[in-house]
Design a protein around this nucleic acid. Structure first.
Lengths: 191, 191
DNA sequence: ATGACATCTTAAACTAGGTTAAGTTCCTTT
DNA sequence: AAAGGAACTTAACCTAGTTTAAGATGTCAT
Protein backbone atom coordinates (compact mmCIF):
# COMPACT_ATOMS: atom_id res chain seq x y z
CA UNK A 1 0.00 0.00 0.00
CA UNK A 2 2.62 2.53 1.09
CA UNK A 3 5.07 0.98 -1.36
CA UNK A 4 3.60 3.01 -4.24
CA UNK A 5 4.19 6.22 -2.32
CA UNK A 6 7.75 5.34 -1.35
CA UNK A 7 8.50 4.38 -4.91
CA UNK A 8 7.20 7.73 -6.07
CA UNK A 9 9.34 9.64 -3.54
CA UNK A 10 12.41 7.65 -4.51
CA UNK A 11 12.13 8.94 -8.04
CA UNK A 12 13.67 12.16 -6.77
CA UNK A 13 15.32 11.50 -3.39
CA UNK A 14 17.00 8.69 -1.45
CA UNK A 15 15.55 7.44 1.81
CA UNK A 16 16.92 5.37 4.66
CA UNK A 17 14.89 2.52 6.13
CA UNK A 18 14.20 4.68 9.19
CA UNK A 19 12.91 7.48 7.04
CA UNK A 20 10.68 5.13 5.09
CA UNK A 21 9.25 3.91 8.35
CA UNK A 22 8.60 7.47 9.46
CA UNK A 23 6.80 8.29 6.23
CA UNK A 24 4.75 5.13 6.38
CA UNK A 25 3.47 5.95 9.84
CA UNK A 26 2.72 9.57 8.92
CA UNK A 27 0.48 8.79 5.99
CA UNK A 28 -2.88 7.25 6.72
CA UNK A 29 -4.73 4.95 4.40
CA UNK A 30 -8.15 5.99 3.16
CA UNK A 31 -10.72 4.36 0.89
CA UNK A 32 -13.58 6.23 -0.78
CA UNK A 33 -16.36 5.24 -3.12
CA UNK A 34 -17.18 6.91 -6.42
CA UNK A 35 -19.00 10.16 -5.81
CA UNK A 36 -17.63 10.82 -2.33
CA UNK A 37 -16.10 14.18 -1.51
CA UNK A 38 -12.66 14.54 0.05
CA UNK A 39 -12.90 18.30 0.26
CA UNK A 40 -16.13 20.24 0.15
CA UNK A 41 -16.31 24.03 0.62
CA UNK A 42 -16.30 25.64 3.04
CA UNK A 43 -14.62 22.82 4.98
CA UNK A 44 -10.91 23.22 5.55
CA UNK A 45 -8.84 20.77 3.50
CA UNK A 46 -7.46 18.44 6.15
CA UNK A 47 -5.07 16.43 4.01
CA UNK A 48 -2.70 16.37 1.15
CA UNK A 49 -3.94 13.38 -0.87
CA UNK A 50 -1.83 10.89 -2.78
CA UNK A 51 -3.81 8.63 -5.09
CA UNK A 52 -2.80 4.97 -5.01
CA UNK A 53 -5.58 3.69 -7.26
CA UNK A 54 -8.71 5.20 -8.74
CA UNK A 55 -9.14 8.85 -9.70
CA UNK A 56 -9.99 12.17 -8.07
CA UNK A 57 -10.84 15.53 -9.57
CA UNK A 58 -10.49 19.02 -8.17
CA UNK A 59 -12.94 21.62 -9.42
CA UNK A 60 -14.44 25.02 -8.80
CA UNK A 61 -18.17 25.67 -8.83
CA UNK A 62 -18.89 29.17 -10.09
CA UNK A 63 -21.84 31.43 -9.26
CA UNK A 64 -23.91 30.00 -12.11
CA UNK A 65 -23.35 26.49 -10.81
CA UNK A 66 -20.96 25.64 -13.63
CA UNK A 67 -18.20 23.21 -12.75
CA UNK A 68 -14.63 24.09 -13.80
CA UNK A 69 -12.08 21.31 -13.53
CA UNK A 70 -8.65 22.27 -12.23
CA UNK A 71 -7.04 18.86 -12.41
CA UNK A 72 -7.71 15.20 -12.60
CA UNK A 73 -5.66 13.08 -10.21
CA UNK A 74 -5.37 9.46 -11.30
CA UNK A 75 -2.82 6.99 -9.86
CA UNK A 76 0.33 8.52 -8.39
CA UNK A 77 -0.94 12.10 -8.49
CA UNK A 78 -1.17 14.42 -5.53
CA UNK A 79 -4.01 16.80 -4.91
CA UNK A 80 -5.54 19.06 -2.32
CA UNK A 81 -6.96 22.57 -2.09
CA UNK A 82 -3.49 23.95 -1.53
CA UNK A 83 -4.54 27.30 -0.15
CA UNK A 84 -6.92 25.77 2.35
CA UNK A 85 -4.51 23.01 3.35
CA UNK A 86 -1.59 25.37 3.92
CA UNK A 87 -3.32 28.33 5.50
CA UNK A 88 -6.21 26.52 7.15
CA UNK A 89 -8.63 28.82 5.40
CA UNK A 90 -12.00 27.78 4.01
CA UNK A 91 -11.66 25.66 0.90
CA UNK A 92 -13.01 26.95 -2.39
CA UNK A 93 -12.46 23.85 -4.50
CA UNK A 94 -14.25 20.54 -4.43
CA UNK A 95 -12.30 17.31 -4.51
CA UNK A 96 -14.44 14.39 -5.54
CA UNK A 97 -13.78 10.73 -6.27
CA UNK A 98 -14.61 9.86 -9.88
CA UNK A 99 -14.10 6.15 -9.17
CA UNK A 100 -13.69 4.02 -6.07
CA UNK A 101 -10.34 5.29 -4.92
CA UNK A 102 -7.57 4.31 -2.50
CA UNK A 103 -5.49 7.11 -1.06
CA UNK A 104 -2.73 7.92 1.33
CA UNK A 105 -3.36 11.13 3.21
CA UNK A 106 -1.25 13.29 5.46
CA UNK A 107 -2.33 16.14 7.72
CA UNK A 108 -0.67 19.52 7.72
CA UNK A 109 0.87 18.88 11.14
CA UNK A 110 2.22 15.46 10.19
CA UNK A 111 3.64 16.85 6.97
CA UNK A 112 5.34 19.77 8.73
CA UNK A 113 6.89 17.37 11.20
CA UNK A 114 7.96 15.07 8.41
CA UNK A 115 9.60 17.92 6.52
CA UNK A 116 11.53 18.87 9.64
CA UNK A 117 12.68 15.34 10.35
CA UNK A 118 13.51 14.53 6.75
CA UNK A 119 14.71 17.84 5.28
CA UNK A 120 15.35 16.16 1.96
CA UNK A 121 11.61 15.86 1.54
CA UNK A 122 11.54 19.60 0.96
CA UNK A 123 13.51 18.75 -2.08
CA UNK A 124 10.94 16.28 -3.30
CA UNK A 125 8.13 18.74 -2.83
CA UNK A 126 10.08 21.53 -4.46
CA UNK A 127 10.42 19.37 -7.55
CA UNK A 128 6.78 18.30 -7.39
CA UNK A 129 5.70 21.94 -7.22
CA UNK A 130 8.03 22.97 -10.00
CA UNK A 131 6.43 20.39 -12.24
CA UNK A 132 2.99 21.56 -11.22
CA UNK A 133 3.93 25.13 -12.13
CA UNK A 134 5.14 24.12 -15.56
CA UNK A 135 1.94 22.18 -16.16
CA UNK A 136 -0.26 25.04 -15.05
CA UNK A 137 1.62 27.59 -17.15
CA UNK A 138 1.20 25.40 -20.16
CA UNK A 139 -2.49 25.08 -19.44
CA UNK A 140 -2.93 28.85 -19.21
CA UNK A 141 -1.28 29.30 -22.59
CA UNK A 142 -3.47 26.57 -23.98
CA UNK A 143 -6.62 28.25 -22.88
CA UNK A 144 -5.43 31.63 -24.11
CA UNK A 145 -3.98 30.65 -27.45
CA UNK A 146 -5.56 27.42 -28.67
CA UNK A 147 -8.94 26.41 -29.98
CA UNK A 148 -10.83 23.60 -28.31
CA UNK A 149 -9.69 21.06 -30.93
CA UNK A 150 -6.07 21.51 -29.99
CA UNK A 151 -6.74 21.68 -26.27
CA UNK A 152 -8.51 18.36 -26.51
CA UNK A 153 -5.54 16.76 -28.24
CA UNK A 154 -3.27 18.00 -25.46
CA UNK A 155 -5.61 16.65 -22.84
CA UNK A 156 -5.26 13.26 -24.51
CA UNK A 157 -1.48 13.51 -24.29
CA UNK A 158 -1.46 14.59 -20.67
CA UNK A 159 -3.95 12.00 -19.43
CA UNK A 160 -3.85 9.09 -21.88
CA UNK A 161 -5.32 6.76 -19.23
CA UNK A 162 -8.40 8.90 -18.74
CA UNK A 163 -10.00 9.29 -22.16
CA UNK A 164 -12.21 6.25 -21.73
CA UNK A 165 -12.54 6.35 -17.98
CA UNK A 166 -14.28 9.71 -17.73
CA UNK A 167 -17.69 10.89 -18.93
CA UNK A 168 -17.40 13.46 -21.70
CA UNK A 169 -18.97 16.28 -19.79
CA UNK A 170 -16.04 16.21 -17.35
CA UNK A 171 -13.55 16.44 -20.15
CA UNK A 172 -15.57 19.35 -21.54
CA UNK A 173 -15.36 21.04 -18.15
CA UNK A 174 -11.59 20.54 -18.11
CA UNK A 175 -11.33 22.07 -21.57
CA UNK A 176 -13.52 24.98 -20.54
CA UNK A 177 -16.41 24.43 -22.94
CA UNK A 178 -19.97 23.19 -22.71
CA UNK A 179 -20.66 19.48 -23.20
CA UNK A 180 -22.81 20.41 -26.21
CA UNK A 181 -20.00 22.22 -27.95
CA UNK A 182 -17.51 19.52 -27.06
CA UNK A 183 -19.75 16.95 -28.66
CA UNK A 184 -19.77 19.04 -31.85
CA UNK A 185 -15.97 19.34 -31.78
CA UNK A 186 -15.49 15.62 -31.36
CA UNK A 187 -17.72 14.76 -34.28
CA UNK A 188 -15.86 17.36 -36.35
CA UNK A 189 -12.55 15.67 -35.50
CA UNK A 190 -13.72 12.20 -36.38
CA UNK A 191 -14.54 13.20 -39.95
CA UNK B 1 21.47 45.83 -3.46
CA UNK B 2 21.41 42.29 -2.07
CA UNK B 3 19.60 43.57 1.00
CA UNK B 4 16.25 43.44 -0.82
CA UNK B 5 16.78 39.79 -1.65
CA UNK B 6 17.83 38.85 1.88
CA UNK B 7 14.86 40.67 3.27
CA UNK B 8 12.60 38.71 0.96
CA UNK B 9 14.14 35.38 1.97
CA UNK B 10 13.83 36.27 5.64
CA UNK B 11 10.08 36.56 5.25
CA UNK B 12 9.98 32.78 5.37
CA UNK B 13 13.27 31.49 6.79
CA UNK B 14 16.04 32.53 9.21
CA UNK B 15 19.60 32.96 7.99
CA UNK B 16 22.94 33.19 9.77
CA UNK B 17 25.47 35.83 8.78
CA UNK B 18 27.52 33.15 7.04
CA UNK B 19 24.57 32.02 5.03
CA UNK B 20 23.75 35.58 4.03
CA UNK B 21 27.30 35.98 2.84
CA UNK B 22 27.02 32.78 0.81
CA UNK B 23 23.83 33.94 -0.82
CA UNK B 24 25.23 37.36 -1.58
CA UNK B 25 28.19 35.88 -3.40
CA UNK B 26 26.04 33.41 -5.33
CA UNK B 27 23.71 35.98 -6.84
CA UNK B 28 25.13 38.31 -9.44
CA UNK B 29 23.94 41.80 -10.08
CA UNK B 30 22.57 42.65 -13.51
CA UNK B 31 21.19 45.83 -15.07
CA UNK B 32 19.13 45.93 -18.23
CA UNK B 33 17.44 48.68 -20.20
CA UNK B 34 13.82 48.76 -21.25
CA UNK B 35 13.26 46.48 -24.21
CA UNK B 36 16.16 44.13 -23.52
CA UNK B 37 15.61 40.39 -23.41
CA UNK B 38 16.74 38.20 -20.53
CA UNK B 39 15.53 35.01 -22.16
CA UNK B 40 14.87 34.63 -25.85
CA UNK B 41 13.91 31.29 -27.44
CA UNK B 42 15.57 29.04 -28.27
CA UNK B 43 18.33 30.10 -25.86
CA UNK B 44 18.52 28.14 -22.64
CA UNK B 45 17.43 30.19 -19.62
CA UNK B 46 20.68 30.69 -17.74
CA UNK B 47 19.31 32.27 -14.59
CA UNK B 48 16.56 32.47 -12.09
CA UNK B 49 15.86 36.22 -11.95
CA UNK B 50 14.94 38.23 -8.88
CA UNK B 51 13.72 41.75 -9.66
CA UNK B 52 15.11 44.47 -7.38
CA UNK B 53 13.64 47.42 -9.27
CA UNK B 54 11.86 47.85 -12.57
CA UNK B 55 9.64 45.25 -14.22
CA UNK B 56 9.96 42.17 -16.39
CA UNK B 57 7.37 40.18 -18.27
CA UNK B 58 7.34 36.55 -19.38
CA UNK B 59 5.33 35.71 -22.48
CA UNK B 60 4.71 33.17 -25.18
CA UNK B 61 4.63 34.04 -28.86
CA UNK B 62 2.18 31.81 -30.71
CA UNK B 63 2.27 30.70 -34.33
CA UNK B 64 0.25 33.73 -35.45
CA UNK B 65 2.74 36.05 -33.76
CA UNK B 66 0.32 36.89 -30.96
CA UNK B 67 1.92 37.57 -27.60
CA UNK B 68 0.44 35.85 -24.51
CA UNK B 69 1.61 37.14 -21.16
CA UNK B 70 2.28 34.56 -18.48
CA UNK B 71 3.30 36.92 -15.71
CA UNK B 72 4.54 40.36 -14.95
CA UNK B 73 7.44 40.51 -12.51
CA UNK B 74 7.75 43.89 -10.79
CA UNK B 75 9.88 44.52 -7.68
CA UNK B 76 10.51 41.49 -5.47
CA UNK B 77 9.14 38.96 -7.95
CA UNK B 78 11.02 35.99 -9.30
CA UNK B 79 10.86 34.82 -12.87
CA UNK B 80 12.49 32.51 -15.38
CA UNK B 81 11.48 29.99 -18.00
CA UNK B 82 11.32 27.29 -15.35
CA UNK B 83 11.39 24.33 -17.69
CA UNK B 84 14.40 25.62 -19.58
CA UNK B 85 16.23 26.70 -16.43
CA UNK B 86 15.74 23.39 -14.65
CA UNK B 87 16.19 20.94 -17.50
CA UNK B 88 18.55 22.98 -19.67
CA UNK B 89 16.17 22.56 -22.57
CA UNK B 90 15.44 25.22 -25.17
CA UNK B 91 13.33 28.03 -23.77
CA UNK B 92 9.87 28.65 -25.19
CA UNK B 93 9.04 31.84 -23.34
CA UNK B 94 10.45 35.31 -23.78
CA UNK B 95 11.46 37.36 -20.77
CA UNK B 96 11.71 41.03 -21.57
CA UNK B 97 12.36 44.17 -19.54
CA UNK B 98 9.38 46.54 -19.63
CA UNK B 99 11.39 49.24 -17.86
CA UNK B 100 15.04 49.78 -17.01
CA UNK B 101 15.46 47.01 -14.48
CA UNK B 102 17.92 45.91 -11.80
CA UNK B 103 18.12 42.23 -11.04
CA UNK B 104 19.88 39.62 -9.03
CA UNK B 105 20.46 36.44 -10.98
CA UNK B 106 21.64 32.97 -10.04
CA UNK B 107 22.71 30.13 -12.30
CA UNK B 108 21.37 26.64 -12.01
CA UNK B 109 24.73 25.36 -10.68
CA UNK B 110 25.05 28.11 -8.09
CA UNK B 111 21.47 27.57 -6.97
CA UNK B 112 21.91 23.80 -6.63
CA UNK B 113 25.04 24.36 -4.57
CA UNK B 114 23.26 26.93 -2.45
CA UNK B 115 20.36 24.57 -1.82
CA UNK B 116 22.80 21.90 -0.69
CA UNK B 117 24.73 24.22 1.61
CA UNK B 118 21.64 25.90 3.04
CA UNK B 119 18.97 23.16 3.06
CA UNK B 120 16.52 25.57 4.62
CA UNK B 121 16.43 27.37 1.31
CA UNK B 122 14.50 24.42 -0.09
CA UNK B 123 11.89 25.52 2.35
CA UNK B 124 11.80 29.05 0.99
CA UNK B 125 11.48 27.82 -2.57
CA UNK B 126 8.84 25.31 -1.62
CA UNK B 127 6.75 28.15 -0.23
CA UNK B 128 7.48 30.36 -3.21
CA UNK B 129 6.35 27.62 -5.56
CA UNK B 130 3.26 26.87 -3.51
CA UNK B 131 2.24 30.49 -3.84
CA UNK B 132 2.93 30.40 -7.55
CA UNK B 133 0.70 27.36 -7.92
CA UNK B 134 -2.17 29.02 -6.07
CA UNK B 135 -1.84 32.09 -8.27
CA UNK B 136 -1.76 30.06 -11.47
CA UNK B 137 -4.75 27.94 -10.45
CA UNK B 138 -6.71 31.06 -9.74
CA UNK B 139 -5.73 32.47 -13.10
CA UNK B 140 -6.92 29.34 -14.92
CA UNK B 141 -10.28 29.56 -13.22
CA UNK B 142 -10.47 33.22 -14.10
CA UNK B 143 -9.92 32.57 -17.75
CA UNK B 144 -12.38 29.68 -17.73
CA UNK B 145 -15.16 31.19 -15.69
CA UNK B 146 -15.01 34.98 -15.85
CA UNK B 147 -15.70 37.59 -18.49
CA UNK B 148 -13.00 40.07 -19.37
CA UNK B 149 -14.55 42.75 -17.13
CA UNK B 150 -14.01 40.67 -14.03
CA UNK B 151 -10.61 39.42 -15.07
CA UNK B 152 -9.51 43.01 -15.47
CA UNK B 153 -10.65 43.88 -11.96
CA UNK B 154 -8.66 40.96 -10.61
CA UNK B 155 -5.60 42.05 -12.51
CA UNK B 156 -5.91 45.42 -10.78
CA UNK B 157 -5.99 43.70 -7.40
CA UNK B 158 -3.05 41.43 -8.14
CA UNK B 159 -0.81 44.12 -9.60
CA UNK B 160 -1.99 47.49 -8.20
CA UNK B 161 1.40 49.05 -8.96
CA UNK B 162 1.22 48.21 -12.64
CA UNK B 163 -2.01 49.71 -13.94
CA UNK B 164 -0.38 53.00 -14.88
CA UNK B 165 3.09 51.69 -15.60
CA UNK B 166 2.15 49.38 -18.47
CA UNK B 167 0.78 50.08 -21.93
CA UNK B 168 -2.76 48.80 -22.35
CA UNK B 169 -1.96 46.32 -25.04
CA UNK B 170 0.17 44.39 -22.57
CA UNK B 171 -2.63 44.26 -20.05
CA UNK B 172 -4.90 43.03 -22.86
CA UNK B 173 -2.39 40.30 -23.62
CA UNK B 174 -2.35 39.27 -19.95
CA UNK B 175 -6.15 39.12 -19.93
CA UNK B 176 -6.15 37.11 -23.13
CA UNK B 177 -8.04 39.55 -25.36
CA UNK B 178 -7.19 41.86 -28.23
CA UNK B 179 -6.25 45.47 -27.46
CA UNK B 180 -9.30 46.56 -29.47
CA UNK B 181 -11.69 44.56 -27.37
CA UNK B 182 -9.99 45.58 -24.17
CA UNK B 183 -10.44 49.21 -25.12
CA UNK B 184 -14.16 48.54 -25.62
CA UNK B 185 -14.38 46.85 -22.21
CA UNK B 186 -12.63 49.70 -20.44
CA UNK B 187 -14.94 52.33 -21.88
CA UNK B 188 -17.92 50.15 -20.92
CA UNK B 189 -16.64 50.04 -17.33
CA UNK B 190 -16.15 53.77 -17.05
CA UNK B 191 -19.79 54.46 -17.80
C1' DA C 1 -38.24 -6.30 -18.09
C1' DT C 2 -39.41 -1.55 -16.59
C1' DG C 3 -39.02 2.82 -15.13
C1' DA C 4 -36.10 6.55 -13.77
C1' DC C 5 -32.26 9.28 -14.37
C1' DA C 6 -27.91 10.39 -16.32
C1' DT C 7 -25.36 11.10 -20.54
C1' DC C 8 -24.79 12.21 -25.38
C1' DT C 9 -26.23 14.32 -29.82
C1' DT C 10 -28.18 17.73 -33.01
C1' DA C 11 -29.81 21.99 -34.30
C1' DA C 12 -31.51 26.89 -34.18
C1' DA C 13 -30.98 31.37 -32.19
C1' DC C 14 -27.82 34.19 -29.65
C1' DT C 15 -23.47 36.68 -27.57
C1' DA C 16 -18.68 37.46 -26.32
C1' DG C 17 -14.88 38.48 -28.38
C1' DG C 18 -11.99 38.71 -32.96
C1' DT C 19 -10.75 41.08 -37.38
C1' DT C 20 -10.17 44.71 -40.30
C1' DA C 21 -9.76 49.21 -41.13
C1' DA C 22 -9.88 54.19 -40.47
C1' DG C 23 -9.15 57.98 -37.52
C1' DT C 24 -7.13 60.15 -33.21
C1' DT C 25 -3.84 61.08 -29.69
C1' DC C 26 0.53 60.93 -27.84
C1' DC C 27 5.90 60.43 -27.96
C1' DT C 28 10.20 60.68 -29.99
C1' DT C 29 13.47 62.15 -32.93
C1' DT C 30 15.18 65.45 -35.74
C1' DA D 1 8.10 72.94 -35.02
C1' DA D 2 7.43 69.12 -37.91
C1' DA D 3 7.28 64.42 -39.07
C1' DG D 4 7.00 59.80 -38.06
C1' DG D 5 5.68 56.10 -35.57
C1' DA D 6 3.63 53.79 -31.65
C1' DA D 7 -0.45 53.36 -28.79
C1' DC D 8 -5.40 53.98 -28.25
C1' DT D 9 -10.34 54.35 -29.89
C1' DT D 10 -14.46 53.40 -32.59
C1' DA D 11 -17.25 50.96 -35.60
C1' DA D 12 -18.88 47.43 -39.00
C1' DC D 13 -18.73 42.84 -39.90
C1' DC D 14 -17.30 37.94 -38.70
C1' DT D 15 -16.72 33.48 -35.88
C1' DA D 16 -16.10 30.46 -31.91
C1' DG D 17 -18.52 29.02 -28.41
C1' DT D 18 -23.19 29.40 -25.47
C1' DT D 19 -28.02 28.63 -24.58
C1' DT D 20 -32.09 26.33 -24.93
C1' DA D 21 -34.58 22.67 -26.15
C1' DA D 22 -35.83 18.23 -27.94
C1' DG D 23 -34.79 13.62 -28.96
C1' DA D 24 -31.79 9.43 -28.64
C1' DT D 25 -29.02 6.24 -26.01
C1' DG D 26 -27.32 4.22 -21.96
C1' DT D 27 -27.30 2.42 -17.21
C1' DC D 28 -28.81 1.13 -12.89
C1' DA D 29 -32.07 -0.44 -9.25
C1' DT D 30 -36.09 -2.69 -8.53
Amino acid sequence: MHAVLLQELKKHINLTADEEELITTSFRHKKVRKGQFLVQPPDIALYEHFVVSGCLMEYYLDDNGTQHTLIFAPERWWTTDLNSFLKKEESRYYIEALEDTELLVVTREALDKLLKEIPLLNNYFRILYQNAIMGLEERILNVLSSKVEERYLRFLKKYPQLENRLPQYLIASYLGVTPEFFSRVKSRIHR
